[in-house]
Amino acid sequence: MKSGNYWMRRIFTSLLVIVIVLSLNFFLFRLMPGDPTSTLLDPRFSPEAKEELLKSYGLDKPLFQQFLLYVKQMLSFKFGLSFLSQKPVWQELAERLPNTLALLLPSLFLSAVLGTFLGVMAAKGRGKFSEKIVLMSGAVSFSFPSFFVQLVLLLLFAHVLPLFPLRGSASIPPPVGFWNLLGDKVWHMALPVLSLVLIGFGSWALYVRNLMVKTLGEDFVLLARAKGLREGQILWGHAFRTALPPIITIFFLSLPGVISGAVITETVFSLHGVGKFLLEAVSGHDYPAAGAAFYLLALITVICNLLADAAYALVDPRISFRKVRR
């Protein structure tokens, strides 16, 4: 089979996934108990007024008509107005995405790099004190609840020692000038990013250490040592490269999570991110907002899966998408 065929098949299955997600997004939210007026608990709001509200959301139309409109909106990337804010869903997402990306991209990258490095070092020094330190710090990082770590950091470094700000992603009022604004942003994001790195690196370290311990026990590593290769070359050039594909898969599959946000971190540090938006959209039956956000997440997940496939071939020459003729 040619590699072109492989990619055609992958793209076709990805589109199928998108169609399924698109349909589920519509029907599952409507199957949830209640409707957008359910959480409106106000005795001053009469049943007639609630009907008017549903009408203003377009929910008085037949379900099939609503579905067609929804599909049209999703495919044209015009997601309509959020029920809760009455603002275009795009505008809501655009307001939030920069903070979410500024929080989660650096933390994912730093956690992955730090965790991977420590994992490799722990595997290298198996049985030594350094491995014990990595294993212990990894387990501690992995097991502490995020809100606890974040509140402690906030208390220590924003209140007791006021080195960092208590809240938000910008000072009030914001400073003037591009560089001042950039510096202000970095200053505000430092503590939330640090907290996520502290919480996140442990799982990477433990995972990579286990992978590397297994890989370093393989015959080809023994052969490399027998050939007299340097330890660094064996570790990074041979063993790590062999262990890399599953690490890359996990990295790429973590990327959609970067878009879906981190509700607790956003709440503790008062960051205006996508996580809280998604939570409110689902719990408030905000169909346009929830539908759009989950549709975009599905798209990004599918794209990241394709990217992970492509990266496999790049990092591991043994992997080819051509069918081997026997």
Binding site: L151, L154, L155, A158, H159, P162, L166, R167, G168, I172, P173, E266, T267, V268, F269, S270, H272, K276
Partner: peptide, 20 residues
């Protein structure tokens, strides 16, 4: 008049105590 958005209970308290 600034209406400052602080979502976490503890952060609100720290901001008030710290004069923010």
């Amino acid at each position: 008049l600034y209406c400052v958005i602080i979502k976490d209970n503890d952060a609100q308290l720290l901001a008030l105590e710290g004069g923010k």
